[in-house]
Design a binder for these strands. Structure first.
Lengths: 338, 338
DNA sequence: TTGTACGCGTTATCAT
DNA sequence: ATGATAACGCGTACAA
């Protein structure tokens, strides 16, 4: 293993000078710089990040915590973050929590030991004690997608989920639907709770009765929402439309509908949330609430970078993005006969 | 920041003893151990991974290089690797190369600086000079999914891609198809080349003529294969069936078919490769070549761990998994009239 | 502009 | 079973 000392010897300078060259210090004579660079080339030297991190207290690494990388929403935002981070000299240590708060806790501890420069969370629970370790350590962090109950003191970039859900239900209402079901996400996450709120708000505004039998539970991944949709279809008064708290859940409901011999949208209309890539496939054509994932991810990363690099404890950056409804085939375009 | 020294003082022992406790050395009196643990608790101490890595020459981190995390195949294998690695005390630094060899080179350099204990590659090109830096550094690495031309000297776990493609074409042939097109993946990857070979082998075996007009080019992600499929459909002698080199490409072809007003499978049959989750959705029902992704990912990680932890330069672990054809709806079940 | 010398936090070696 | 000390590779005050 070749170190800074080897380069120093080879170039007939001191370690300090080599260090200066590596770190682009202005105070080094062009000739010396060249001598050193030549030695670096010849010996195929590259600096040791561990040693640099120890001295400089900066590792140029960031912990990224996601619920589930197989969910396209997370995969796409992770891609954006990883690439953008790489362009700025940061590496991403990726952890997937499966929405398990104790797993998240463990990962946080590990990342703290590894001296990451900061955290990006897309995985937080509404009540999330695991963040306190990060706060105690004084490390910067940014939330995206979800926020915690302590959001007022955090940096975050989220969607106006309530509005998104409202738009979805409004669309269904205007198409003539009156029995609109909700497959809700877990209320232990801000997204789940807020989207449910948007659904309820729309119901209220349009004078629709709040029927508990039309609200079923789902998880963001896994097949629980398939079963929940089945329950809906098999009830004695099935809904004519379903709003699901994310696209994966809507897709499961779609699958269940087909299993029941139901036609979408003729027998049941469907709206999802996220606008994942497959939603636009012509065999699916899922009407859904779109959000600008990439922008969200970019803002999250850039915010964190700014905090890391400025050090100054500035006021929290809190961004709320606006959703859009993307209309495709799963709701049809005709008025429903009431 | 509390260090080992603080603990030592607090517990009235030496740094060395604290270190022994942390590392579960057997040579420490139970009472002392307890004293130390108490101090650790009280001062909320956790060790610094950078310092440990410097001394012990082990960082318990692994570089994982993927082409594209938004491809479900990679997302699912990454999930498996991350979780399994976490359970064994390893962190994963994830890098996405976009199939760009110079990006990969850059990431490798960064990971070398970071002193990862080893590499897992799912992103290699058939001719891939970027790996030489890893080899020179003497670091262990394992390939999965794809291999390089130097595979005989590598550890790898891959699928029998040729067999997979053969099974796909065989299925189509037995259903009566005689004009079977191929949307091939890039031949710069072993997967692309091998799957094309399987296609050709089947053609030959069944006495079908090798028609260059039936072979079009695609990339594993992006929409190039949509355009390629369009070319196929708009030709003067369109195929009655298409085999695509992965599911994402097959899905694009499906989309193109629907755009052209073609019915799947009535007008054109479709087979993909990978069996990603959405393939089994009832609105899609993609017939495809299945592979045991999780097993592949597990073997890749476990192999690497074994090498890292044994240190002994054992002989390469080389595993070739067998594919299976999963028949769904996109080929129909009836014989094609010839 | 360059060099000297120390310290970051830990583990390994050698004593005791 | 425990302690003293050196060393890992680098950056940075300070001196020259």
């Amino acid at each position: 293993m070749t170190t800074i000392k080897d380069i120093a010897r080879r170039a007939n300078v001191s370690d300090a000078t080599v260090s200066r060259v590596i770190n682009n210090s202005p105070n080094v004579k062009p000739q010396t710089r060249e001598k050193v660079n030549k030695a670096i080339e010849e010996l195929n030297y590259y600096p040791n990040s561990l040693a640099r991190g120890m001295r400089s207290k900066k590792t140029h690494s960031i912990g990224l915590l996601l619920a589930d990388i197989t969910n396209p929403f997370y995969a796409e935002t992770a891609k954006t973050i990883i690439e953008r981070a790489g362009n700025h000299g940061y590496s991403i240590i990726l952890c997937t929590t499966n929405n398990d708060i104790s797993e998240q806790q463990k990962y946080i501890d590990v990342l703290l030991q590894r001296k990451v420069d900061g955290f990006i969370f897309a995985s937080v629970h509404w009540k999330d004690p695991s963040l306190s370790a990060v706060i105690e350590a004084g490390l910067p962090y940014v939330l995206y997608n979800r926020k915690t109950s302590a959001y007022k003191r955090s940096n975050y970039v989220v969607l106006d989920n309530e509005l998104g859900a409202y738009l979805a239900v409004e669309h269904l209402y205007k198409l003539g639907h009156r029995r609109i079901a909700l497959i809700r996400g877990p209320h232990t996450f801000s997204t789940g709770k807020e989207r449910s709120n948007g659904y309820l708000k729309a119901l209220k505004e349009f004078g629709l009765s709040h029927d508990e039998k039309l609200i079923v539970q789902g998880k963001y991944s896994g097949k629980e929402s398939y079963d929940s949709a089945m329950k809906l279809f098999n009830s004695n008064k099935p809904p004519t439309a379903i709003f699901a708290s994310n696209d994966l859940m809507a897709l499961r409901a779609y699958d269940a509908a087909l299993f029941c011999g139901l036609s979408v949208p003729r027998d049941v209309a469907l709206v999802g949330f996220d606008d994942i890539e497959i939603a636009s496939h012509r065999a699916i054509g899922l009407t859904t609430v779109s959000q600008n994932r990439n922008l969200m991810a970019e803002i999250a990363l850039d915010t964190l970078r700014k905090i890391i690099e400025n050090e100054s404890p500035q006021e929290p950056a809190q961004v709320v993005l606006k959703p859009m409804l993307t209309v495709r085939e799963t709701c049809g375009s005709q008025m429903k006969k009431i």
